[in-house]
Amino acid sequence: MYSNFKEQAIEYVKQAVQEDNAGNYSKAFPLYMNALEYFKTHLKYEKNPKIKEAITQKFTEHLRRAEEIRAVLDDGGTGPASNGGNASLRAGLNSAIITEKPNVQWSDVAGLESAKQALQEAVILPVKFPQFFTGKRRPWRAFLLYGPPGTGKSYLAKAVATEADSTFFSVSSSDLVSKWMGESEKLVSNLFQMARESAPSIIFIDEIDSLWHNDQKVLVLAATNTPYSLDQAIRWRFDKQIYIPLPDLKARQHMFKVHLGDTHHNLTEHDFEHLAYRTDGFSGSDISVCVNDVLFEPVWKTKDASYFVETSNGIWVPCGSTQRRAVQVTLQELEAQGLASKILPPPISRTDFEKVLARQRPTVSKADLEVHNRFTKEFGEEG
């Protein structure tokens, strides 16, 4: 039952901030006070010390704002309380954000095994084995969870925050847009500053598709996969409609090199040329996906290896059981021996690419290409 007190407090805060931002301080003040009462009641029943700490912090922030408004009202003032525009924005942002240290375990999330595995590896591997992520191989820092309502997206995000022992910032983009239209740049800056102050932290933005901005002083670069589905009035708002075609042979060969970067590999120029021929019809995104999968092939080999060999400089790399001086040992056992920093994945090979390409297909069909070519002839121009 006590969770209802927090929900009611948050609802009162939202109303209070709405009146606060509109300058209706006589209405905002009692709403803040009602919210504070519900927060106080919630604190009486809350057992989780981390959540109690987060609620106490929020209580203090809203109490400070309520006192500022009361001072203005007592002086008979009607203008904005003197806490500065940025402070007001942050106070309002605080009200729309649920900040907590969640306690949702992986086992609490039903199903979603592949999603859990991907997120778990993205959270844990970079922490335990930072040396795996060198060159172009970087830990993932942003995820889009998509699917029908009620499938557990926010719950899964909380499990990630629990696993990473991170502060969880949950905010609805539609709520933000309705309250702070025109303040998007300051809003994002404040949101990430708050997250940095509570680092390590995770920001979960719900309803991301509802964000939309329109500003005459801003250069807009828009993209769509379905140009024919755009309303004609919207298309007319763009001065140029430029077609971005699939990459040709040379472009694909270059893309493989760029995406691979200085990540440790043993591919030759002939190998890159072969990959370019092998991926006729692939988009730049397809090649990026391919390389991103390949980048982690050595990591998976290392994670699942049963045999390792120690090099002359004390580095342990995975190997086959028949390799000279091979030791039957797992990654976890080497870690337990205090050798985590001495383990490195093998270089990327052409075989790694062949393995990934065997299961990957171009995402753009011939029918899709025909639609884009026809649209280009009617409305666009070659890029």
Rank of each mutant, 00 (worst) to 15 (best):
V220Y: 01
L249V: 07
R350Y: 14
E310P: 00
V289Q: 00
A340S: 14
Q8R: 04
L275F: 00
Y2G: 09
L73N: 13
D286W: 00
W140A: 15
P148C: 10
S283C: 05
R325G: 13
S285L: 06
N21P: 00
P139F: 12
K179L: 14
R359T: 14
I124F: 07
A122H: 07
E7V: 15
K52Y: 03
R325N: 15
L249D: 05
F168N: 05
F39C: 00
D271A: 05
I315A: 08
A159M: 08
H254C: 05
D352K: 02
V72F: 01
P347G: 10
I10N: 10
R237G: 01
V291A: 00
F168R: 03
I202D: 08
V356L: 01
N21M: 07
N103P: 07
P49T: 11
Q120M: 13
E185I: 07
E197R: 12
K301V: 11
R237M: 05
E183Y: 12
R359C: 04
Q332L: 15
G23P: 02
P245S: 04
Q216S: 14
L334W: 06
V329G: 09
Q323I: 12
Q253V: 09
A22I: 10
D20F: 14
V188E: 04
T60H: 11
N24S: 11
G380P: 02
P200C: 03
A164T: 06
I242E: 02
S312Q: 10
H213L: 09
F192M: 14
E333G: 05
S201E: 12
A358L: 09
I55S: 07
I348K: 01
L176T: 07
N313S: 12
H372R: 08
A22D: 13
K303P: 00
I51P: 01
Y32K: 07
H264K: 14
D368M: 07
E297P: 00
D175K: 11
A28H: 00
Y228R: 13
A340W: 03
Q120L: 09
D286C: 01
E37A: 13
V356E: 02
S95V: 07
S114C: 02
A81S: 15
V364C: 03
N34G: 08
Y243L: 04
D175S: 13
I98N: 11
W212R: 03
V371H: 00
K257N: 02
K217I: 08
Q360E: 07
K14T: 15
Q253H: 11
F353P: 03
T99A: 15
Y2H: 15
L357Y: 03
L295W: 03
I287G: 00
K250C: 07
G152T: 07
A223S: 08
I234L: 10
V356G: 01
S312R: 08
V364F: 01
S3T: 15
K355R: 15
K50Q: 10
S26Y: 09
A115F: 02
E370C: 03
E163R: 08
I55E: 11
P102Q: 09
H274M: 09
V299F: 04
N94Y: 10
F272A: 03
S154C: 06
N292A: 08
S349C: 06
E183H: 13
R278V: 08
E113C: 10
V13Y: 00
A367P: 02
